[in-house]
Design a protein around this nucleic acid. Structure first.
Length: 429
RNA sequence: CGGGGCGUAGCGCAGUCCGGUAGCGCAUCUGCUUUGGGAGCAGAGGGUCGGCGGUUCGAAUCCGCCCGCCCCGACCA
């Protein structure tokens, strides 16, 4: 992508309304634009990251055996009356009426919706286990939205729903999601700590929330150092052991009763990015989602639900990966992999070499943002640092004459002088 | 919802107390010079001062009502 043809409205100064670093940087890097309290448009750069995060989540869900669907944002109040949540949910739910005065709502979550799908189509235990998920916008009319996309009212969430014949099966489904979550966050370069959690309004008996570590995180967390050394590569992962490892937020952590020896107890700050629940028949029973068992008896299906805040993750990633100059994207979620800077597009040697490099990178399928604008060097560097692409390639008039270009990883202060061929070897591999 | 604050040009702000018809920096446009860490000079454009009503000869400024946004707290992916 040529920067001169792109839409990247970066800000030189900090916006007045942004308090935390991810919000400031997302606004400054031209990733988002606020439309109303807690409601944002995603601009090109932000949208690319959102899509990358979404895709990683999708791939790990698919790998774990979940099946993607897409449910609507608007739901009828009826199904929420069936589950009993219409009255319970409170003012966080945005209630609306259509032209026929029918009561509708903008979905804050989709348990009722998916349970309705299930009950219409699944009759037998032989069709289980089943795990359906979607990645869809939600609306929760938060009392106080804040921190940009970290706590928006409208947000993109992946929510998966498992259906099993019995509790043992439900436990396996839960554990599969548990592991998938660890892998998902790991792929984004994040350390995720699963914690025993209250189940809140979703309800249920078993629940973990996943906090990723960032120094600017909202809550203080304590956890067993073993979480940092997890090997998630193998086929066999000891879930029993993982769910048994100690982790707690500060309000639940009691030093006197902590089972982890002090030398292995880690303390950090965390941001909640995922939450998983096992809630049994809480929805299947009132809504009549039943299956026939091998014994010929009809039983309500055992369910769980599994959420990941996709849009929140974008903010959380920046909280975890930034420095005083801007964002430092991990490669897996970076909006572009390479930022190619032509310092003097008007200089024949420099401009020509940069153009040629851009074509080669493009041909090799390397996602490249090519800055061939007439800005001055300092401004170009500042923008590249701000938007945080993992690899900066600088082509200047002096180097171009000598047949050399510069490679700068965004993380760290390393600078390498390379021939164009050596550079392409490194970036295209 | 309780507490605090803000709304003036695309962005960041001054001007409001003490009424006299709007200003600074950045950005934008034109020209010249510059060109490896957010350039310099010269010129130009851009604002119903959040909205409505009131007071006044005159309101960004005083009064009333309304709207929006931010921050702290209780709640959450």
């Amino acid at each position: 992508m040529r920067l001169s043809r792109y839409f990247l409205p970066v800000l030189k100064e900090d916006p007045a309304e942004a308090e935390i670093v991810s919000h400031r940087l997302m606004l400054r890097a031209g990733m988002i634009q606020q439309l109303a309290a807690g409601i944002y448009s995603w601009l090109p750069l932000g949208f690319r990251v959102l899509r990358k995060v979404e895709q990683i989540v999708r791939e790990e869900m698919d790998r774990a055996g979940a099946i993607e669907i897409l449910m609507p944002t608007i739901q009828p109040a009826d199904i929420w009356r069936e589950s009993g949540r219409y009255e319970v949910y409170g003012r966080e739910m945005l209630r609306i009426r259509d032209r026929h005065e029918r009561e509708m709502l903008y979905g804050p979550t989709n348990e009722e919706n998916v349970t309705d799908i299930f009950r219409r189509h699944v009759r037998s235990y032989r069709q289980l286990p089943l795990n359906l998920y979607h990645i869809q916008w939600k609306f929760r009319d938060e009392i106080r939205p804040r921190f940009g996309v970290m706590r928006g009212r409208e947000f993109l969430m992946k929510d998966a729903y498992s259906f099993d014949y019995d509790q043992a099966g439900a436990r396996r489904s839960y554990e599969a999601m548990f592991v998938a979550y660890l892998k998902t966050f790991r792929r984004m370069g994040l350390t995720a700590i699963p914690m025993q959690a209250e189940s809140g309004p979703i309800g249920g008996s078993m629940s973990h929330e996943f906090q990723i570590l960032a120094s600017t995180g909202e809550s203080e967390v304590f956890y067993d150092a073993a979480f940092e050394e997890l090997d998630l590569s193998g086929a066999e992962i000891d879930v029993e052991r993982l769910t048994g490892l100690y982790a707690a937020t500060d309000d639940k952590h009691d030093p006197a009763r902590c089972p982890v020896p002090p030398e292995r107890l880690k303390r950090a700050r965390g941001i909640e990015v995922g939450h998983i629940f096992y809630f049994g028949t809480k929805y299947s029973e009132p809504m009549g989602a039943t299956v026939m068992g091998p014994d010929g008896r009809e039983v309500p299906v055992e369910m769980g639900s599994y959420g990941i805040g996709v849009s929140r993750l974008v903010g959380a990633l920046i909280e975890a990966f930034h420095d005083d100059r801007g964002i430092v994207w991990p490669e897996s979620v970076a909006p572009f992999r390479v930022g190619l800077v032509s310092l003097r597009p008007d200089d024949p040697a420099c401009g020509g070499l940069a153009d040629a490099l851009y074509e080669r990178l493009r041909a090799a399928g390397v996602e490249t943002l090519y800055d061939e604008t007439e800005e001055r060097a300092g401004a170009k560097f500042a923008t590249m640092d701000l938007i945080g692409l993992p690899w900066q390639v600088v082509v200047g008039p002096r180097g171009a004459k000598a047949g050399l270009v510069e490679l700068r990883p965004r993380a760290g202060d390393e600078r390498l002088e390379l021939t164009p061929e050596a550079l392409l070897d490194r970036l295209c591999s």
